[in-house]
Design a binder for these strands. Structure first.
Lengths: 363, 363
DNA sequence: GGGACCTAAGAAAACGCTTTCTTGTCCGTT
DNA sequence: AACGGACAAGAAAGCGTTTTCTTAGGTCCC
């Protein structure tokens, strides 16, 4: 075997893998194989190579690697907006799971803006991601098409086009929502409102439907005037709450389709001097970390970020690595009872009058 | 000029730039030049090229581009933890500014974990970022060294090693903190506590010092027992608040070194039935978006995320593009008064008794 | 009208890896 | 002892761009 000299660089200095090869007195191929843990390299040589890598502080150029191997090792994550606390928690989960599977992630947010959405797609395409999880809670059609056409494995939440290479994560909203409604009904509520997300988004409709269904199950007739449309933001919650306050016949409890909306409701209630839960019960959705310290701590329907991330990455990997791609994955939701829900106003005194129950003491 | 055929790909299909070149009947060099808007290409040809790009839906491979040009066009952003709402807001700003300057960003969080920190560095190095903004509010020494040694332009907040290629963003904590302390003092508070961040972080110390200094300026003697150490989380705020509650001589107002801490304080106060601001005034720091809807809305010291992002990217660009790199950049802070601050307990009645003032009515 | 220059576009050489192709060795067979 | 197969490591061919180097045409000017 001849000496390993290949690309002498200007100024005599070798760069990157060549420098390592020279220092370890092996060929660059061997260095590459060592780094990639190809089992056939002689342990002796491997040791030399690692030593050289160490001494030189060599860090592989990931772009060159991607180019050479044709694999980027990156999974994309498209979210709605990073400033909604639900998403950072999701990102964290996604990153942890991805890392454990040997992938890096590329996060991009649409900000509900078509321009940004295009940017998202372009980024994913330019970076040659191996798969994309679209967790915007509202499938953006053009985005889908563009990616699907190029055979990028995709995973959506709730709903998405039926096509090979595309998986779905079905969130069982009904379970959690039913628990929530039953919880309220059990407390004595009959007048329950719902603040949805933007109704043009699929997940918003899913959640609203789950609510109507659950209501019916409890024998409560849904009233259209108590179905408000929010937009997943605090401001939307505040506006919806204002509508509720304006109406003559107010609900005694409100469910929100996410925790930010609930936060807005809580805020507005505080503003007008309505006590939660004494005057109004509030239920959130998502159970973001902060729900626990809201005032009062928010009863919410939990959707595990980790489960979601886990499912998404499992789905993507299944496609990328060709290991039995499944079309659907399930994620459950469940009620977490805290202190934003209580008896409807008047109920307590009635009960006490009738000697049927002790007044509930809140901490 | 000869026909432009260069790399015929297997299966007859050309890929990437070659396909475009073939379709437009030009050489790949011309395609590249067109895309990069080199002014010397014939408009005629350029039009043909763009048409071909359009028809083929060609998207350049960004890794190949980075490799060929030696420029990644990526700026790194290292943050502490993505689940603290301050950071997503910062990321958003950073991304917007970067985008406007023609850069992409790579965000990585340390999670206060040395292992993760190493991962951060490695990522930045592997991806060949052109500069890194370290906004962890606590300079991690090893991280710095590794990057600085490789001549990656860096920008820190508050403090960092004095070295070429490294810039600093000096946050004027004193301005905002002084306003906060004066605000409290004006309301009549003399017993003011402070919950800092982890004192081993530089920015935590800076904020604490600004507080002590401001206190002195108002002629109030700082009391060590009212200087608590938090950790920038809600939980830390809760713990600190517990300490405050345990002490016999409680402060009438508390300043927190970030809003999450304040949120914890608010929560704990609620838990024990302390009314804010009637029984205790609370001032936050950062003024995250959510501060506005906390219960009660939080008086906070605002540090503009956009200013921070702007300064960071300006600094980095100055180094990368060699346009008069400056060592220091300034960012200011200022008080935003909301409803978590009021007269100290007793003050109102005293004043009323003495006929000096009307009791303040809160909305 | 024929050099001396420009100019614009093609050819080809990087860029830093991965991976296939080759080749030299060492063994086991017969 | 000659031959074939394994095996490990080097050589070299990509990967998809950018960029340098060349070269084919035009202009200009005397």
């Amino acid at each position: 075997m001849s000496r390993a000299v290949q690309h002498p660089k200007k100024r005599g200095k070798l760069l990157g893998i060549h420098a390592v090869a020279a220092k370890a007195r092996v060929s660059i191929a061997t260095v590459s194989r060592t780094i990639n843990r190809v089992p056939t390299v002689n342990p002796q040589m491997a040791k030399r190579v690692w030593a050289a890598i160490d001494e030189l502080g060599y860090v592989p150029n990931i772009q060159a690697r991607a180019l050479g191997s044709g694999r980027s090792g990156v999974l994309g994550l498209v979210i709605s907006e990073i400033t909604n606390p639900f998403f950072p928690e999701l990102i964290q989960g996604f990153e942890d799971v991805a890392l454990a599977s040997g992938y890096e992630i590329l996060v991009s947010s649409t900000n509900y803006d078509p321009k940004r959405m295009e940017l998202c797609i372009r980024r994913m395409l330019e970076r040659k991601v191996e798969g994309v999880a679209v967790m915007t809670f509202g499938i953006e059609q053009p985005l889908v098409e563009e990616l699907a056409e190029r055979d990028v494995p995709l995973v959506f939440v709730d709903a998405g086009p039926e096509r090979p290479g595309i998986s779905l994560i079905k969130v069982n909203y009904h379970h959690g929502v039913r628990q929530g409604v039953q919880h309220l009904a059990a407390l004595g509520h009959r007048k329950i409102g719902f603040i949805s997300g933007p109704m043009h988004l699929h997940s918003a409709r899913s959640r609203a439907e789950a609510f109507s269904l659950s209501l019916a199950e409890c024998g409560i007739k849904p009233r259209a005037k108590w179905m408000l449309e929010g937009d997943h933001t605090m401001e939307g919650g505040i506006r919806a709450m204002e509508q509720i306050l304006d109406s003559a016949d107010r609900p005694t409890a409100v469910m929100c389709s996410n925790d930010m909306t609930a936060l807005g409701v809580l805020h507005k209630a505080y503003r007008v001097g309505l006590r939660v839960p004494d005057d109004l019960s509030v239920v959130g959705f998502d159970d973001i970390h902060m729900a626990e310290v809201m005032i009062p701590p928010l009863t919410s329907i939990r959707m595990s970020r980790l489960d979601l991330a886990q499912a998404a990455i499992t789905a993507l990997r299944a496609h990328v690595e060709g290991t039995g791609p499944q079309r659907e994955y399930q994620v459950d939701t469940r009620l977490v009872v805290r202190e934003s829900t209580g008896y409807p106003p008047g109920a307590m005194t009635d009960l006490v009058k009738n000697g049927k129950a002790e007044p509930a003491r809140r901490r």
